[in-house]
Simulated scan of single mutants.
Amino acid sequence: MQKYRLRILTGSIQEAYEAAIQLICEFAGCEVVVLKVQPNHVDLVSMIPSKFGISQVFK
């Protein structure tokens, strides 16, 4: 656990992160179930096809 979390994921940065994650998931054939971009972290639940590993999708 980090000692300090910077609150930088707001405004246009938040929108850019959401769009980038959606794009990556679409490209990899994944389904985004839950995506919440908080000011200091991102919560993501996605359905990844069994032919891929998590590390392969989010390199």
Rank of each mutant, 00 (worst) to 15 (best):
Y4T: 10
A16M: 07
D43H: 13
V32C: 05
G29R: 07
V45S: 11
K3W: 06
Q38E: 10
F52Y: 09
I21T: 06
F58H: 04
G29W: 04
L9M: 15
G11S: 10
Q14W: 04
N40R: 13
F27M: 13
S55E: 12
E26V: 13
N40S: 12
C30F: 01
M47D: 15
E31A: 09
V34Q: 15
L44A: 12
V33D: 04
L35Y: 07
S12N: 09
E26K: 14
F52T: 08
L35R: 12
C30M: 10
A19D: 14
Y4C: 01
A28L: 07
S50Y: 02
V32S: 03
V45A: 12
I24E: 00
R7E: 06
F52S: 14
E18H: 11
T10L: 04
V57Q: 07
A28V: 14
D43M: 10
A19C: 14
G29D: 13
A16W: 13
H41F: 01
A19N: 15
G53C: 06
E26P: 06
L6H: 14
V34G: 15
K59P: 07
K36Y: 15
G29I: 05
I8E: 06
C30E: 12
S55W: 05
E18C: 08
H41C: 01
S50P: 01
L6E: 04
Q14D: 07
F27H: 14
N40M: 05
A28D: 12
E26A: 11
Q38K: 04
L6T: 06
I48F: 13
I13G: 05
V42C: 11
I48N: 05
R5P: 08
I8Q: 06
I21Y: 02
S12M: 12
K3E: 00
G11M: 03
V32M: 10
S46E: 11
F58P: 01
S46C: 09
V34L: 09
R7W: 04
V45G: 09
A20M: 15
V34N: 12
S46H: 03
I48T: 11
Q38R: 13
V37K: 10
L23C: 05
Q56D: 15
C25M: 11
K59E: 09
V33Q: 09
Q38P: 01
G11N: 08
T10D: 03
E18Q: 14
K59W: 09
P39R: 07
